[in-house]
C-alpha cells in the first residue's frame, strides 16, 4: 500500500493568494525511505506537514493528499486527529519543542497509547520496550525522568520512540538530525532506518543535506521555490544529477572524500515561490537558462534515472 501520495498540491495564503507550493507530487511506498531536499524556504516543511493536514492559517489548498487511504484535504477535524494519533507520526528538528518540559518521559510515551485504550500497565510495558529499542540504557529510569535531564540526541531518541509507539504507516521526519552532532546524527539515522525496516513504515525524510538524503534514501525529491524540480533514486541523484539546480547544489558542496575540488558558488540566493521569477523559478540563477525558460514552468521529463522539470536537463554549461 502507498503510505503517502501527494498529487498536484498547490497552496496559497491570504487575500492576495500568495503562492507557497505549486503542483507538488510526492509518493512514499510502504517501507520506503523517501527524501525531500532543498534549501531554506523551498517548501519542504509545508509539503511534509500537509500530510498531517497541517496547513498554514488561511491557506487554500488544491490537489490531493492521501495517507494510508485517508483523503487528508477532505478530512474533518476528528478524522485528522485520528489519523495523527494512529497512522502518521512526525519527528521534528528540535526534540525539546516536541515534548512537554514539565511532564515525565513516561507520560509522554504512554499518553498516545492510553488514548487508544491500552491499559496503563500494558502501555508502560510498551514504553519500556520502545525505549530499549531506541537504545536507552536504563529504560525504567528514563520513564521517571524529565526532558531536561536528557541530551538533545537522547531526547530525539525518546521522541522517535514516541513516534513509533503506534506503529504508524507513515513517519514524517523533518530535519530530525539537523540539530545533532554528526556522530549522533549517524546513530539516530541508523536507528530510524532499523525501526522503519522492522515495522514496514514509510518514511518521508526532509533535509537540506543532499549528501545525507542520497546516502539513506531509496528515492529523493529535490525542491526549489515551492516546486519539485527533480526526482531520482538516491544514488543516481548523486552520481548523475539531471536538473541544473541539483547539479549546482552538488558543485557548491565541499566534500570530505575524493579529490579536493573547488566549490562552485551559485549566484543569488534561494527563493520562495512568491519571490521567484515566472517560468522556471531557477532561471535567474541557472547557468543554462535561455529565453525559452521564461515562457512556462517546465514540465517533467525523463533524463537517465531522473525525472526533471527542466528544458535542458543533463546539458553541460557552455
Amino acid at each position: 500500500m502507498t503510505a503517502l501520495a501527494i498529487e498536484g498540491l498547490g497552496l496559497t495564503v491570504g487575500a492576495g493568494a500568495v503562492p507557497l507550493l505549486d503542483g507538488v507530487g510526492v509518493r512514499v511506498g510502504a517501507g520506503e525511505t523517501v527524501g525531500l531536499v532543498g534549501e531554506s524556504g523551498s517548501g519542504k516543511s509545508l509539503t511534509a506537514r500537509s500530510a498531517l493536514g497541517m496547513l498554514p492559517r488561511g491557506a487554500r489548498a488544491t490537489g490531493r493528499v492521501t495517507v494510508a487511504g485517508t483523503d487528508v484535504l477532505a478530512a474533518g477535524r476528528r478524522e485528522l486527529r485520528e489519523l495523527r494519533r494512529t497512522r502518521v507520526s512526525m519527528v521534528f528538528q528540535d526534540p525539546r519543542a516536541a515534548v512537554n518540559p514539565v511532564r515525565r518521559v513516561g507520560d509522554y510515551l504512554t499518553e498516545g497509547l492510553r488514548a487508544r485504550g491500552v491499559p496503563a500497565r500494558a502501555a508502560t510495558e510498551r514504553a519500556l520496550d520502545l525505549l530499549a529499542q531506541v537504545g536507552l540504557r536504563d529504560p525504567r529510569g528514563a520513564l521517571r525522568r524529565y526532558p531536561h535531564e536528557f541530551s538533545g540526541g537522547m531526547l530525539q531518541r525518546v521522541v522517535i520512540a514516541g513516534a513509533l509507539a503506534t506503529e504508524p504507516a507513515l513517519l514524517l521526519a523533518d530535519e530530525p538530525t539537523t540539530a545533532l552532532d554528526v556522530t549522533t546524527q549517524a546513530e539516530v539515522v541508523g536507528l530510524l532506518k532499523e525501526l522503519q525496516k522492522a515495522h514496514g513504515t514509510g518514511m518521508l525524510f526532509v533535509t537540506h543535506d543532499l549528501d545525507l538524503a542520497a546516502a539513506i534514501c531509496d528515492r529523493v525529491y529535490v525542491m526549489y521555490a515551492g516546486r519539485i524540480v527533480e526526482e531520482a533514486p538516491g544514488a543516481a541523484l548523486f552520481g548523475a544529477p539531471a536538473h541544473p539546480y541539483t547539479r549546482a547544489l552538488l558543485e557548491a558542496s565541499p566534500s570530505v572524500r575524493g579529490e579536493r575540488a573547488a566549490v562552485k558558488a551559485v549566484r543569488g540566493r534561494p527563493r520562495s515561490l512568491a519571490e521567484a521569477p515566472g517560468g522556471c523559478a531557477f532561471r535567474d540563477r541557472c547557468p543554462l537558462a535561455g529565453d525559452d525558460c521564461a515562457r512556462a514552468v517546465p514540465g517533467t521529463r525523463r533524463h537517465g534515472a531522473s525525472l526533471a522539470a527542466c528544458l535542458r536537463a543533463g546539458e553541460e554549461p557552455r
Binding site: V182, T183, Q185, A186, E187, V189, G190, K193, D209, D211, L212, A214, A215, I216, G234, A235, F238, G239, V256, R257
Partner: peptide, 21 residues
C-alpha cells in the same frame, strides 16, 4: 575516525560508525 565515518556518503556504512564508537 569516528567523526569521518559519521559523514554521510553513498553506501554509508552505519555498522562501521558503531564499531568506531
Amino acid at each position: 575516525r569516528l567523526l569521518l565515518d559519521s559523514v554521510p556518503v553513498p553506501g554509508w556504512d552505519l555498522e562501521r560508525v558503531a564499531r568506531d564508537r
